[in-house]
């Protein structure tokens, strides 16, 4: 009896050790490319070519300002362009998505179901439809402007954002709204003062997810933007890489790529739980 128990605990320990070994190995595989990127961003180009796997002999921090101010393909420029596009887009989404979600979940009107299904259909079928989008933007005379990105981004974000707001609003008890009505608040004020503040957590998740998605978006920018000065960060990166992945400037290249991923890594570390839940939901739905 005792022997069996000992056998069992030993088996469990071995299994435990194996689990840890497996997880540590897996984490290492995930982290090595990113770690390598960071390490090489602190070395000079020749040093990287000499041995890309060796730690830096002396830390060259100047790669970062160099990448930020790189002539013609400045990472700083791309960073600011992207930041601008992201903030305008997310601002618009944050205003219109909760309104639509509230209306579809809480207000009674004809065609409510039909409108809801139109949005939900967009979640499953269709995509950026770039050729037709280009034609539309050509007709509106918006090619090579940021509106050619912002408007499709907002439209593409609608189905998921509205669904999230809809779910959240549906879960809030009706009594709260009723008491607001008894107090004589107008429907708009009920929304603005009572309902929206309660839905802030959901709204916040939507905003973070959209920031991530738009910060990383590449294809639409590739088609719509022509002037290199206007390039968003992913576009700027591909151009930047073409000029810096060589013997002299490889360290600058690594620094540039690292600058581009740093904001998201910071956001991710702070809000990892929220982002994981939201993003896996988004992927499942899309």
């Amino acid at each position: 009896m005792v022997e069996r128990k000992i056998e069992k605990t030993v088996g469990r320990r071995v299994r435990r050790a194996l689990s840890y070994a497996f997880m540590i190995g897996f984490s290492a595989i995930i982290l090595i490319p990113i770690g390598l990127l960071f390490m090489n961003s602190l070395k000079t180009g020749p040093e990287v070519y000499n041995n890309p796997l060796a730690p830096p002999s002396s830390i060259v921090f100047s790669n970062y300002p160099d990448a930020w101010n790189w002539p013609n393909t400045s990472i700083g420029r791309g960073f600011l362009n992207s930041a601008m596009v992201v903030s305008i887009t997310v601002l618009i989404i944050a205003i219109i998505a909760p309104m639509a979600g509230y209306s579809l979940s809480r207000l009674e009107f004809r065609g409510r179901k039909a409108i809801f299904y139109i949005f939900m259909a967009g979640m499953f079928v269709g995509g950026p439809a770039i050729v037709a989008m280009y034609r539309l933007m050509m007709g509106l005379n918006l090619i090579n402007t940021y509106w050619a990105l912002i408007l499709p981004y907002v439209a593409g974000a609608m189905p998921f954002s509205i669904l999230m707001m809809w779910t959240y609003f549906s879960a809030i008890p009706r009594a709260i709204e009723d008491s607001a009505r008894v107090d004589g608040l107008s429907p708009f004020k009920t929304y603005w003062r009572i309902m929206l503040p309660q839905a802030l957590p959901a709204l916040f998740t939507i905003c973070i997810l959209q920031v991530i998605w738009i910060w990383n978006e590449f294809l639409l920018g590739l088609i719509m933007l022509k002037t290199p000065d206007m390039f968003t960060l992913p576009l700027m990166l591909t151009r930047f890489a073409a000029g810096t992945t060589n013997y002299l400037y490889f360290g600058v290249f690594a620094a540039g790529v690292f600058i581009s991923i740093l904001p998201l890594i910071v956001i991710y570390i702070i809000f990892s739980d929220r982002i994981q839940r939201g993003m896996s939901m988004q992927f499942v739905k899309g």
Binding site: I96, M99, F109, I115, F119, A132, L136, P152
Partner: peptide, 24 residues
């Protein structure tokens, strides 16, 4: 009011998502 609330989102979605997907 309900229509006013849903209109901006719907307009964006119809013009910049549904329409291009059909135009393809």
């Amino acid at each position: 009011l309900p229509y006013l609330f849903v209109l901006p989102a719907l307009a964006f979605f119809m013009i910049f998502f549904i329409y291009p997907n059909i135009d393809v």
